[in-house]
């Protein structure tokens, strides 16, 4: 699984990055988590509100920081 965190570096983006990595670790998912900070690349995902979570090329969440449970749901779907 390929997970991307889109965000230009605001506090909320860091929070999303942290909670996602924690969930991946906890659930021992076979996934790579990368952070995308380049604004042009972020735009190609069609995202106007950061942070956003992308799983295998698909935007599954944007504009807010979810809690760990919600991230679990999003990653296991």
């Amino acid at each position: 699984m390929e997970i991307k965190i889109l965000g230009t570096g605001c506090a909320k983006c860091k929070a999303l990055d942290k909670v996602t990595r924690e969930v991946v670790e906890e659930m021992k998912l076979d996934a790579t988590v990368t952070k995308v900070e380049d604004i042009m690349e972020i735009m190609t995902f069609g995202v106007m509100t950061t942070p956003a979570l992308v799983v295998d090329g698909k935007v599954v969440l944007k504009g807010r920081v979810p809690n760990a449970n919600e991230v679990k749901q999003l990653l296991t779907k």
Partner: peptide, 17 residues
């Protein structure tokens, strides 16, 4: 519209686009 100033840039780009 829910909006946070940290999203000002992507929002601006999105509007222009």
């Amino acid at each position: 519209t829910p909006f946070c100033s940290c999203s000002a840039i992507p929002l601006f780009l999105g509007f222009v686009e």
